[in-house]
Design a protein around this nucleic acid. Structure first.
Lengths: 245, 245
DNA sequence: CGTCAGGTTGACGCGGGTCAAAATGAGTGG
DNA sequence: CCACTCATTTTGACCCGCGTCAACCTGACG
């Protein structure tokens, strides 16, 4: 699974879920990433504040963007799924305000800012598409703010599971019945702003309600409409049917 | 105060806090906004899901981006201060995933996406600067996720007050001793994910600790270092010393 | 002087945190 | 095949921060 040519398909699928990509544009995109690298779960990939010359494309596995508090508690601000850029925003920001780490074993490929710079010159339309992409990250952040500020514990978990179901579905890694999610309950707790203990309790509630279960790196969805209703999940924020640029 | 030429200075100041802007670029920016319009507190400016042909520049007053839950509770995802674009991200997204409303009386000016489109063609550097600007919104979202997920009630309030102090300082509307903030306690509560009642209690605590007070649309900061320490406020996420593009 | 929005305070309840122990289960070595 | 280890999950008992509900206060305005 260390083949860029194959795995970059996921990035293209993710883009194509929202934009038309021509053959010529596809070729330009395919030429961006460097050789893929394997990193193991727990590896810290990017540290806040360091000057960056590259962005990182996630080909396989799950990454988290997170911030830590002094008391050691961690808040994940977004999960990157295969096909996502881990830090496309570093192209404009140059330094990040957060760390990035691997939540599972991952395959990543580097894309130099220099190549992205060239792309903005040669492909203004792709530039807009990548601008859109960082705006989509912001939209996901906003939905998580809603979760963290207003949703109950079980709603937060349900919303997270629903979001990942949609995002993984775009790259063929999920369907209505569930998906593989190689994370621990601690990782979920860091996403939803709860303790691992309480996440465990809420997972039991969701299971007992016949909505979903999570065990052995597998999310099994028993009642997707019910799960979405509970979470008040509205996929609009994922911009699946955007307007042409 | 309905003079665009004067008030757009705030937008330029905000940009100049982070980027060099040449005289020629300044002229291009000054030509963007349409005639300013006054709107009164509470007005809903933009509704989620509608197709947008313009972005809105906030010249005076405070706007909120927010999402509502079924139970009527509202989460503000970001506060726009004078000089900010309310919805620059609508340029790429075309529709928004959230509403925007005036938290106070405001002066706004429209910037058509068509003009922005032209700007991206004629001024690639400004394009990158505005891309940066939407990424900065995302950075603020991330910090709010940290607040909502991990900070205590008083820390959340302290962090919000600290953030606005910095952002308003950039346009000369705040100093170390405080600033004018024409909001109600309800607005604060919608930002920090708490009830108005609890915000009131926490404001009392902050006052009794000699850190800050908020009364009559005025934030008075008695101990800025103390307030920042309490909030674990690190202004890095506001990118005040960015690297040249 | 009446009204009304917004601010303030108190009593009480609950959701989620904390702490600690126990269960599970995937290695790993004997 | 069993014993041991260690990470992870699970459960229980208890506590506390914040929500809820309701009353009351304050000041602006007519």
């Amino acid at each position: 699974m260390a083949d860029v040519d194959g795995l970059i398909e996921r990035h293209l699928n993710r883009l194509r879920a929202r934009h038309f990509i021509s053959a010529e544009e596809e070729a330009a995109i395919r030429s961006l990433p460097d050789v893929p690298v394997q990193i193991s779960a727990g590896t810290m990939l990017i540290r806040a504040g360091r000057r960056l010359e590259n962005s990182t494309l996630l080909l396989d596995g799950f990454l988290s963007r997170y911030k830590d508090m002094a008391n050691g508690r961690r808040q994940v601000t977004e999960v990157a799924v295969p096909g996502d850029f881990a830090d496309l925003h570093s192209f404009a920001l140059k330094r990040l305000d957060h760390d990035i780490a691997a939540m599972s074993d991952c395959t990543v490929a580097t894309v130099s800012h220099e190549k992205l710079e060239d792309l903005t010159r040669t492909h203004p339309r792709l530039t807009r598409i990548y601008w859109f992409t960082t705006n989509l990250d912001a939209a996901i952040h906003r939905e998580w703010e809603l979760s963290l500020g207003q949703r109950s514990a079980e709603q937060r978990l349900a919303a997270l599971i629903c979001e990942l179901q949609v995002r993984l579905g775009l790259i063929g890694m999920a369907d209505e019945s569930g998906y593989t999610l190689p994370l621990k309950q601690v990782h979920l707790s860091e996403c939803v702003g709860l303790t691992p203990v309480h996440v465990n309790r809420m997972l039991r509630v969701l299971r007992e309600r016949g909505l979903m279960s999570f065990s052995g790196a597998r999310v099994t969805i028993h009642d997707l409409p019910g799960l979405r209703r509970l979470a008040e999940f509205d996929e609009g924020y994922l911009y699946l049917h955007p307007d042409p640029l």
